[in-house]
Amino acid sequence: MVDHSIKGKIVLIGGGAKNLGGLIARDLAAQGAKAIAIHYNSAATQAAADETLAAIKAAGADAIAFRSDLTTAAAVEKLFEDVKANFGAIDIAINTTGKVLKKPFVEITEAEYDEMFAINSKAAFFFIKEAGKHLSDNGKLVTLVTSLLGAFTPFYAAYAGAKAPIEHFTRAASKEYGSRGISVSAIGPGPMDTPFFYPAEGADAVAYHKTAAALSAFSKTGLTDIQDIIPFIRFLVSDGWWITGQTILINGGYTTK
């Protein structure tokens, strides 16, 4: 019988130093993961990465951090190879990386378009590709997208548009990797109460988002709390293995498809 528990597993988290990625790392360590590799992008995140590494180790798991810009295929390939060189295997791969741009369609520059697709789409594509090459049989793969994929809204053409291809990457990979028992999922949180959210929004937009979900009144901030995403990640990389090829929007009734 296949063991789908988290206990004893090797985990790689793209964007795993802080915010949701950092909380996922801490939670999976608490669930008994053997080792967790966290990726982070820049020197600005070094301190957060160090704190997350310390928390993982305090929970009893081994831990290592890798700094890398994942917008090239070579960088993603090296990340997976480095993790395997250190831990010998990868059982669970989770990619939380991304960047928001909120801007009128007619003002988006070519450089901004290229950046959005490099960070949000290209990096995700090659992360999924390398996971298919390196994950152990019966592994788990999860990519973070956005609930904006179910929204009818202006100003997010480049951001949501760059996240949208991941839905098909997820479906295709689930069919191709399924023969090895690997499940592939995407999770789309609603607007989350993290530093990732606020810089892109004005005061009026923040006020709207804090009341837009059906369950906003029962949230501490009205937004999606990253703590509320954790149980779904934990489930998908363990007992929820039978869910594959799906994009699941988790947003308290903010929007649906």
Rank of each mutant, 00 (worst) to 15 (best):
residue 228 D to K: 03
residue 148 L to S: 14
residue 11 V to K: 02
residue 41 N to S: 10
residue 99 K to C: 00
residue 52 T to G: 07
residue 13 I to R: 02
residue 32 G to L: 06
residue 5 S to W: 08
residue 110 E to A: 12
residue 96 T to W: 08
residue 9 K to L: 07
residue 160 A to R: 08
residue 96 T to R: 02
residue 98 G to L: 06
residue 172 A to W: 04
residue 34 K to M: 09
residue 166 I to S: 11
residue 76 V to C: 06
residue 234 R to E: 10
residue 27 D to Q: 15
residue 250 I to A: 05
residue 161 G to V: 11
residue 7 K to T: 13
residue 169 F to P: 01
residue 234 R to F: 00
residue 174 S to T: 07
residue 114 D to S: 14
residue 228 D to A: 12
residue 233 I to T: 09
residue 173 A to H: 00
residue 121 S to R: 10
residue 92 I to V: 13
residue 2 V to F: 08
residue 231 P to Q: 06
residue 60 G to Y: 09
residue 102 K to W: 11
residue 160 A to G: 13
residue 77 E to A: 14
residue 214 A to G: 15
residue 131 A to S: 14
residue 116 M to V: 01
residue 38 I to Q: 03
residue 11 V to Q: 06
residue 187 I to T: 00
residue 164 A to D: 11
residue 128 I to G: 06
residue 125 F to T: 05
residue 65 A to F: 07
residue 189 P to F: 07
residue 97 T to R: 01
residue 84 K to H: 07
residue 46 Q to I: 03
residue 105 F to A: 09
residue 194 T to A: 03
residue 92 I to C: 04
residue 222 G to A: 08
residue 203 A to W: 00
residue 233 I to P: 10
residue 191 P to S: 09
residue 70 L to G: 04
residue 87 F to L: 13
residue 143 T to L: 10
residue 164 A to I: 03
residue 124 A to K: 14
residue 239 D to E: 15
residue 174 S to Q: 10
residue 185 S to L: 12
residue 187 I to G: 02
residue 255 T to N: 13
residue 112 E to G: 08
residue 238 S to M: 05
residue 10 I to M: 09
residue 66 F to E: 11
residue 223 L to Q: 12
residue 162 A to G: 14
residue 131 A to K: 10
residue 83 V to Y: 02
residue 203 A to F: 04
residue 252 G to P: 08
residue 251 N to S: 10
residue 234 R to W: 07
residue 187 I to C: 04
residue 12 L to T: 00
residue 16 G to I: 08
residue 17 A to C: 05
residue 177 Y to R: 00
residue 186 A to R: 08
residue 13 I to P: 03
residue 84 K to L: 12
residue 223 L to R: 13
residue 253 G to N: 07
residue 226 I to H: 11
residue 205 A to L: 10
residue 63 A to T: 08
residue 177 Y to L: 15
residue 59 A to G: 01
residue 121 S to W: 09
residue 6 I to E: 11
residue 8 G to P: 02
residue 251 N to C: 12
residue 122 K to S: 10
residue 130 E to Q: 15
residue 13 I to N: 01
residue 16 G to P: 03
residue 186 A to K: 07
residue 70 L to E: 02
residue 236 L to M: 11
residue 210 K to R: 15
residue 80 F to N: 01
residue 75 A to I: 05
residue 170 T to P: 06
residue 125 F to L: 14
residue 238 S to F: 11
residue 12 L to P: 00
residue 109 T to W: 00
residue 169 F to H: 04
residue 197 F to I: 06
residue 116 M to R: 06
residue 182 I to N: 05
residue 92 I to F: 04
residue 113 Y to I: 12
residue 216 S to H: 15
residue 72 T to S: 15
residue 175 K to P: 05
residue 22 G to I: 07
residue 36 I to F: 04
residue 37 A to G: 01
residue 13 I to V: 10
residue 91 D to T: 04
residue 153 T to G: 02
residue 71 T to A: 02
residue 135 L to P: 02
residue 136 S to C: 09
residue 233 I to Q: 01
residue 100 V to N: 13
residue 2 V to R: 14
